[in-house]
Design a protein around this nucleic acid. Structure first.
Lengths: 221, 221
DNA sequence: AATAGAAAAATTGGATCCAATATACAATAT
DNA sequence: ATATTGTATATTGGATCCAATTTTTCTATT
């Protein structure tokens, strides 16, 4: 029997759909930080009741993307400069280790895919897509680490600061620098130099963080 | 006006209470892995309806403590040896960094508290309490890192493998070795030797992981 | 007796309803 | 005019009800 088997176990529930949509909207900055999320309003937007919305909001809160107060509701979580700084520092630690673990396992296909993302990043003119391509580039390499737990942590960390990272890429000329650094990381991976790839990734993340924090300090003062 | 003001904003909701209770039961191993969690049954145990229970289960799933399948329900998540191994490796990375960041900030009170936990750990005869004291010892030092994001990650990582860690302490004589290592870590902290404390913490976590994995490999085969 | 299939029970996901709380606003007092 | 109190509205948290799905039990057939 030849059939494209589909795993029906994980058919999306209403809560899944709402969660995915809200997560995406927050990550991409379509929902401004501080914005109120009214259960009723969201429920109507998705043609469902408040129950799945409440579950979605609960998940978002667990991931730190929103904050809720009892009987008051949910608002998109903002991050202080100190929190942003800390998350970048954390990412530098973990992602440097992930790429180190990944390099020995990199095969031709993975490197080719990463190379495509790297080129695409450099050529893309629509700044709205940089964040997504940037993420794809790094993640395609990280996957070779074969460390699902690390990868999940990296994803949730990135979720928290993705909005700001996107801003940093478009402003302060972060894009051209990121492009250079991506090429260097990719080259180190091709050379199977895990230590170098790790150091470059660490610096890449820290550079982005420093540049972003400097920008925000200026902007918020 | 003289009144002991209490912040009523964060009065626990029913979902909070159920979540805390289930989390504790899973972490401490009172709920065996694979065990079914029936919404109705739990709701009755807490004299509430299924709604708060569902929210609690949703949170537990986000933290990886249970797995759920649509229309089938929730079961306490078990971990494969590979997953346990990975989480210990991850903890070693992060906790080594956290203690390094903590050492410069350690004040007398914090060291005194850690010292008390360390002594308590060595003297406690009730093996059921070792897990909790062990956690308190490490966490009291980690707090000085002033890195709330790191600390939250450390907590959730520990939540995932605490059951197994408790088993490891009671079996394979893990307890006496842990006690020795705690004293060495504490001494390095008193000496303000961040590098040493970091290295010792890393080894401490990796040792526990290796010993646990060896035990499980033997047991599960 | 073993097995396939149908009916019944159990369980979850979602909708609707009610209670508790917060917010907005009007009325009143100073 | 301002501040305070009371009231109405909006919003959330929780209970109950219904639909979709799974699991169990029963029955018929071989």
């Amino acid at each position: 029997m030849k059939l494209a088997a589909v795993d029906v176990r994980q058919a999306a529930s209403a809560a899944d759909i709402v969660y995915d949509a809200l997560r995406k909207a927050i990550i991409e900055g379509d929902l401004a930080e501080g914005e109120n999320l009214r259960q009723d309003q969201i429920a109507q937007m998705f043609n469902t009741s408040r129950i799945p919305v409440r579950e979605a909001l609960s998940r978002l809160e667990q991931h730190g993307l929103i904050t809720t107060e009892r009987y008051k509701g949910a608002v998109v979580a903002g991050l202080s400069i100190e929190e942003i700084d800390e998350i970048f520092e954390f990412r530098a630690l973990v992602e440097a280790e992930v790429i180190r673990l990944a390099v020995p396992n990199l095969d031709k296909d993975t490197l080719a895919a990463a190379s495509r993302y790297c080129a695409e990043f450099g050529q893309e003119t629509d700044s709205a897509r940089w964040g997504e391509i940037n993420r794809s580039f790094h993640y395609s390499l990280y996957t070779a680490s074969r460390r699902p737990y690390y990868l999940q942590i990296v994803q949730t960390s990135l979720d928290r600061i993705d909005r700001y990272l996107r801003a940093q890429l478009t402003l302060t000329n972060g894009m051209t620098r990121a492009d250079r650094e991506h090429q260097a990381i990719l080259a180190a991976c091709v050379d199977r130099d895990a230590d170098l790839a790790s150091r470059l990734t660490r610096d890449h993340v820290l550079n982005a963080g420093r540049s972003l924090v400097a920008f925000l300090k200026d902007q918020r003062s």
